Simulated scan of single mutants.
Amino acid sequence: SADYDAWLIRIGDGDQFGSGFVEVNPNSKIPALMDHSVTPPRRVFESGAILLYLAEKFDAFLPHDPSLRTETLNWLFWQMGSAPYLGGGFGHFYHYAPTKIEYAIDRFAMEVKRQLDVLDRHLADHRFMAGDEYTIADMAIWPWYGRLIRGGAYGDAATFLDGASYTSVARWEAEIAARPAVKRGIMVNRTSGEPSGQLWERHDASDFATRTQDKLDPQS
């Protein structure tokens, strides 16, 4: 496993527009990575680029077989091209927008449901996105669409979208959610939910046991 420092960027406070962060990601979006194991340090921004960079660096979660590697990248870039705009657009108009615009909600909901149908049909015949092997494609897609159908995003959006009907996505989501590394990963930089599940910053593997918010602030 790789050691790393995970710094909390509070986007509500505008941390992403500070000069230090902009030097890492000129687009002022999270996540961004700075690799200090090379000289000079190397910046990596956009989540898909980060996943691909780390997979190649550590030779993990990216198949060597050319066909499976291509299939992994097919789905990784499918996520990059669809989920942030379509899923994020749906979340904005359905849950966050101060004015509810029926056309916008319906338009984005229709596209999200189409994406979920694409996933469901694919996962009906595949354990993971690229076959039997868990890859960076699963890592990219799960936080968006897996979280959405299990009711972890945008209020009651899972009910509105009939998330329970996507049974193959639900099976895939549950298997990934049970992975120990995933359970740890979703704690990092988390500032909401149960305090025992919030690790605002991660700088050592022991932080998961000693520096969760319930231990740093027992009153939280």
Rank of each mutant, 00 (worst) to 15 (best):
G48E: 09
S206L: 08
E71F: 14
H203C: 07
E46Q: 15
D138G: 13
S67T: 15
G185Q: 09
A174P: 01
R42M: 14
D156C: 02
Q79R: 13
Y85M: 14
A157M: 08
S1A: 14
K113V: 05
L52C: 09
D214E: 05
A177M: 09
K57Q: 08
P84W: 06
L76F: 06
K215G: 10
P84L: 05
S206T: 12
D106W: 01
Q16I: 02
R190G: 03
V188Q: 10
D138E: 12
Y94W: 05
G197P: 06
S206Q: 09
L51Q: 12
E46F: 15
Q219I: 11
V38L: 10
R127H: 10
D162L: 03
F45T: 07
A124L: 03
R202A: 08
S192C: 07
P63M: 14
Y94L: 03
R114M: 02
E133K: 15
S165E: 10
A32P: 08
Y94R: 04
A177K: 13
Y166C: 06
R190E: 05
A130R: 07
V44T: 09
A140S: 15
R121H: 09
L116T: 06
F17K: 10
L73T: 09
K29V: 01
D204C: 06
E194G: 00
E71T: 15
R184A: 11
A109T: 00
Q219A: 15
Q115Y: 06
F45E: 01
H64G: 12
A55F: 00
T210Q: 11
W78P: 02
R150D: 13
W200A: 00
V22A: 05
L86E: 03
S47W: 01
E194S: 08
K100Q: 10
I101P: 04
W144I: 11
F128Q: 13
